[in-house]
């Protein structure tokens, strides 16, 4: 039996806005096993980001339980959550969130600065390896403004990989990219998944969800369906099949 990375049970998150209470998550339960590629889908406002923030230990649930790698996250304080994020989680954001005027290599090293156990030398080596994994070894000393959107997102993926997390969380990571570049990113993530990385990917695009083995559909803070995709598409194959046309 595979190790359970994420175990959530009856997870709730309420936002109190004056007199009103917004129930963003209303009792969500599911497990994620090691090596899974899970997409979370749903319309706008359905609670995807709220769920991912809790999974990423940026936010705490108002109710229910969340075990990450066997640790009860609800019991942790702010600093302990920071340590968990630093060691066990890799984030990929829609807007890349790279530090400006800071080269790719430095950006990728960033999480390791907050881990006192990693020496300066190990930090650089690991960042170089992470950049190789996203095939950007030739752009190590480029600044974000010298990179395309897709390349910037690959730097961000390298940054998410560098601390060797047990799960990678992505929120609309292809939301700012065109179809072709999105597929490139998905191909990269699929490759990482084949190497054993657990990935949870929030999207509202059906064709992106089709690259994952499992999809959870949210509606109004509840799970609408939790399905295994019978036919997982290969982003790499689709890229090669795509005509390299010049549309303009």
């Amino acid at each position: 039996m595979k190790k359970k990375i994420v175990q959530i049970d009856d997870l709730k998150r309420e936002f109190i806005m004056g007199d009103e209470t917004v129930r963003a998550l209303q009792g969500i339960s599911f497990d994620v096993e090691e090596g899974e590629f899970l997409t979370i889908m749903g319309s706008s406002g359905s609670g995807k980001t709220t769920l991912l923030n809790i999974l990423g230990c940026l936010d705490k649930p108002s109710g229910g339980t969340y075990f990450l790698d066997g640790i009860n996250v609800r019991l942790l304080n702010r600093n302990e959550l920071s340590v968990i994020r630093n060691k066990k989680i890799g984030f990929i954001f829609q807007a890349y969130n790279l530090l400006p005027r800071t080269n790719a290599l430095e950006n990728v090293q960033l999480p390791l600065y907050y881990n006192a156990a990693v020496s300066a030398r190990a930090r650089k080596e690991r960042a170089e390896k992470a950049l190789q994994a996203v095939k950007l070894e030739s752009r190590m000393y480029h600044y974000p403004n010298q990179l395309s959107g897709g390349q910037q997102q690959r730097v961000a993926i390298a940054r998410a990989l560098v601390n060797d997390p047990i799960v990678i969380l992505a929120d609309e990571a292809t939301g700012n990219l065109d179809t072709r570049t999105s597929y490139e990113i998905m191909a990269l993530l699929q490759e990482l998944n084949h190497q054993g990385k657990t990935i949870i990917f929030v999207t509202h695009e059906q064709d992106i969800a089709a690259f994952s083995r499992r999809t959870i559909m949210l509606r109004d803070g509840q799970i609408l369906k939790d399905v295994m995709n019978q036919q997982v598409r290969s982003a790499k194959d689709m890229l090669t099949a795509m005509p390299v046309t010049n549309e303009y």
């Binding site: 990423g56 940026l58 702010r78 600093n79 920071s82 340590v83 994020r85 630093n86 060691k87 984030f91 954001f93 969130n97 530090l99 960033l110 999480p111 907050y114 881990n115 940054r159 601390n163």
Partner: peptide, 16 residues
């Protein structure tokens, strides 16, 4: 602010 958010999300504590 965004940089601070990012640093926190990748593991910086308030103290850092």
């Amino acid at each position: 602010t965004k940089e601070i958010g990012l640093r926190m999300s990748i593991g910086a504590m308030g103290r850092d």
